[in-house]
Each structure stands twice: as structure tokens, then as C-alpha cells.
Design a protein around this nucleic acid. Structure first.
Lengths: 122, 122
DNA sequence: AGAACATATGAACAGACGTTCATATGTGAG
DNA sequence: CTCACATATGAACGTCTGTTCATATGTTCT
């Protein structure tokens, strides 16, 4: 007669590995912060906006022209980027000029491009 | 009498700016590639998985233990990371060991952390 | 004041995404 | 072969996200 085993959990755990990794975890705050930035860069429209602003300060209507998208769509995305402090804005009469708020983004882009180009080779 | 104007488009465009930016656009392919990688890093679970693997090769059940999540959830995420070639796997009997497929990711993480730490100071 | 323009914003909608649940696949032990 | 285990995977579900549409805000000009 075999005993009834209603406990069926994973047993292959290497405790040493787990403990070692656990000692060096990111804070929950850091994990959220990281994923938030990357999520911000994880959309084609926002990538194009940031890349355009990377070159020079632009007003909303210039961005609309460059992207070939609705003014509303662009404005909404600029709004998210603003909330994340990735871009800053400057008012000039009716117009609003946007520019990058943080040069670190530039490095992220460079690393990202390096990654996709590295991938294409392999 | 004012003429009927049913054309109501944006007219504030600075053509020089637009043309200059247009000369230096990313290829559609590059835009998609970039946003795809960043999107992959734009989720807390995947950030934690990659950060764990950054330290050492781990099997699925170790990851389940470290993350405190369902085996299914972890497996699904590993599947996406594999499709994006961010992780690679090695079979050993019943178990499957995952590790980072690309060290560029490491640099992206470092830049990302620099960004969020820079923000906290300002 | 009113008209024209530049931008912002709320609501709505479709599509993408992450988790869960149930179940399938594949491997080693007995 | 059968069982237990490690992992993978499809379907379903609720939630998030990006765009569109309509409209609001704020500015300049007359």
C-alpha cells in the first residue's frame, strides 16, 4: 500500500544557489523603477519621439509632422514621457517645446542599439 | 464674407527642424528592435529573472523558489525571454538550466539603475 | 469680444499582456 | 511499464495600453 501523497511540490531546489541569489536581490523599489523606465522605452512611438528629441528640441507640431501621427496620439505619449521625467517642456506662446530631461536615456539607446546589432551578426 | 475653410491643419511646422530630424531617423526595423528589447525588460518579473540569471545559471525550480511565483508563470516568462534570445537553456535530465544569452543586457541594467538613482537625487 | 490655432485631456475601444488553471511532454527511478 | 517529478504550453480571464474621437484649455491676433 502506498501512502497518499497530496503534497506535490518542487523538490529539485539547489538551496545554495537560491540563497546566494537571494542575498543579492534588488529592492522591490528598484525592480519597479527599472521596469518602469524600460517599459517607457518599450513602445515604437515613444522610441521615435525620444530619438527625435535626442537630436534637438522640438515643438509638438514638428513631432506630429516627423512621426506622421495624430496630434492627440503624440500629445498623449508626450504626457506619459513627461510623467516619467524623461522629457521636459518649455512654453513659447501657443507652442510647447519638448526636449530630453535626462542624458542617461541616450546611453540606454546606445546600449540597446548595440544589442540589436550584435544579435543580427550572430 | 469669410471664405469657407475646411482645411484646418497644423501650420506652425519648422521645416528646417523637421527635415534635419528626418535625415537622421532610425530604420523602422531598428525602432521595432529597440522597443522590443526594452519591452522585454519592462516587466518586474522579467527584470527579476534576468537579475537572478545575471548572477548565475539557474534551473526553473530555483527561479520559482527565488521569485516566489507559480512554476507556470515563470515558465511562460522564460519562454518569452528565450524567443527574444535574451536567455539560453541547457537541459540536464529532467531539469532545464537557464542563463543569460547576451552580456549587453548587463550594461542595459547598469544604465537603467544609474538612471533611477540619478532621478532619486534630483 | 471672437476667430484661428497649438496643445491637452477624458472617454471609449480594440488589442496586447501577465497570471492562473488544467493538462501535456519528457525524463529518471523502481 | 508505471509513477513521480520538472518543465512547457494552450485557453481563459482580467488588466493595462495605445490610438481615436470629441472637446477643453490657453494663446495670439484682429
Amino acid at each position: 500500500m502506498t501512502e497518499i501523497m497530496d503534497v506535490c511540490e518542487i523538490q529539485c531546489i539547489n538551496k545554495e544557489n537560491v540563497m546566494r541569489v537571494r542575498e543579492n536581490t534588488l529592492l522591490a523599489e528598484e525592480v519597479l523603477g527599472l521596469s518602469e523606465i524600460f517599459k517607457a522605452l518599450g513602445d515604437p512611438t515613444r522610441v521615435r519621439i525620444l530619438h527625435a528629441l535626442f537630436q534637438e528640441e522640438l515643438c509638438v507640431c514638428d513631432l506630429v509632422e516627423v512621426l506622421g501621427m495624430t496630434q492627440s496620439a503624440v500629445s498623449h505619449q508626450l504626457s506619459s514621457l513627461r510623467k516619467l521625467r524623461l522629457v521636459k517642456h518649455r512654453k513659447a506662446g501657443k507652442m510647447v517645446f519638448y526636449s530630453l530631461d535626462d542624458d542617461h536615456i541616450l546611453n540606454l539607446f546606445a546600449q540597446g542599439l548595440a544589442h540589436i546589432r550584435h544579435q543580427r551578426l550572430s
